[in-house]
Simulated scan of single mutants.
Amino acid sequence: MLEAGSLSRGERTQRLLQAVHVATSAKERAQLELCVVETNMVVAAQIAARYRGRGIAHDDLEQVAYLALVKAVRRYEFAEDRNFLSFAVPTIRGEIRRYFRDQGWTIRPPRSVQEAQTRIRGVEDELLHELGRAPRPSEIAERSGLDAGLVVEALAATGCFRPSSLEGSATDEGGRVQEWLGDDDPEFGSAEARTVLAPLLAGLTRRERLMLEMRFFRGATQKEIGDTVGVTQMQVSRLLSDLMGRLRAQLVSADERDEHERRSTTLA
Rank of each mutant, 00 (worst) to 15 (best):
G10F: 09
T118R: 07
R15D: 00
R97W: 03
R262A: 05
R82H: 02
I56N: 01
E130A: 12
L267A: 04
V73S: 00
E179Q: 15
D60S: 07
V22Y: 08
R136M: 09
M244T: 15
G94S: 12
I140H: 02
H260F: 10
R194K: 14
A254H: 12
S237C: 12
E77C: 13
L197C: 12
E224D: 08
E33M: 14
L128W: 01
D185E: 12
L155C: 00
R12L: 09
S86K: 07
H129V: 10
R101I: 04
C160E: 06
P163W: 09
D258H: 07
R108P: 02
A23Y: 10
D255Q: 13
M41F: 04
G94K: 06
R15G: 00
F87I: 06
T13L: 03
M1N: 07
A79S: 13
V43M: 07
R206I: 10
R93N: 04
V113Y: 07
G245D: 15
N83I: 06
Q114M: 12
A65T: 01
T24C: 08
D183P: 06
T265M: 13
A79F: 02
T171K: 11
F217H: 13
Q18I: 03
Q117T: 05
A202I: 06
E38C: 09
D81I: 05
L247S: 11
F217S: 11
V196D: 14
G5V: 04
R248D: 12
R207Q: 15
D227H: 04
L69Q: 00
P90L: 03
E38W: 10
R111N: 11
D81S: 14
V229W: 04
K71L: 09
R133H: 01
R143S: 03
L247I: 15
W180V: 14
Q31L: 13
P90E: 01
E3D: 13
V152M: 01
E167P: 02
T24E: 15
T195L: 15
H129S: 11
A48S: 02
E77H: 14
Q222T: 10
G122V: 08
G53T: 03
R238E: 13
V36F: 01
R206H: 12
G53E: 04
G53N: 05
L210Y: 01
R207H: 07
R9Q: 11
R263T: 07
S112W: 08
A191E: 12
Q31R: 14
L240R: 13
T232C: 11
I140R: 00
P137Y: 08
V231F: 06
K27C: 04
S190M: 09
W105E: 04
A170T: 06
Y51P: 01
